[in-house]
Design a protein around this nucleic acid. Structure first.
Length: 103
DNA sequence: TCATTGGCTATCA
DNA sequence: CTGATAGCCAATG
């Protein structure tokens, strides 16, 4: 069941342009709850369709990949396909260059 | 309605 | 690096 909070999260994620990424923290801040990054993660995990929302473009604020409903390996593969460089330690390289900031 | 649990996290010791 | 704590939402009893 989709709640308002969930819809806000998904709406924000769909704003992320291809080839860019954002963090759970930024999303949380964008929806008005800077401390709800954990809830954001739960929201993505409960999306109606795995392909309905680009949750693979959301990473942890420390540069880590984090978890993914379809498997973190798939997340890494998707990001790589979109042009994001991932190191062997599951970390995003040059995060500052790829980071998308909400307005 | 309230209490408890758990999660694709963040931050600090 | 590990462990503990914090803060938010959803599901369950």
């Amino acid at each position: 069941m989709a709640t308002t909070f969930q819809e806000q999260v998904w709406n924000k994620l769909q704003e992320i342009p291809q080839g860019k990424v954002t963090t759970y923290r930024e999303v949380a801040r964008a929806i008005g709850s800077p401390k709800a990054m954990r809830a954001v993660g739960s929201a993505c995990a409960a999306n109606p369709r795995l392909i309905a929302v680009p949750c693979h473009r959301v990473i942890r604020s420390d540069g880590g990949i984090g978890e993914y409903a379809g498997g973190k390996q798939a997340k890494i593969d998707l990001l790589t396909t979109e042009g994001i460089a991932i190191s062997e330690a599951n970390r995003v390289e040059h995060l500052s260059s790829y980071l998308y900031r909400f307005r």
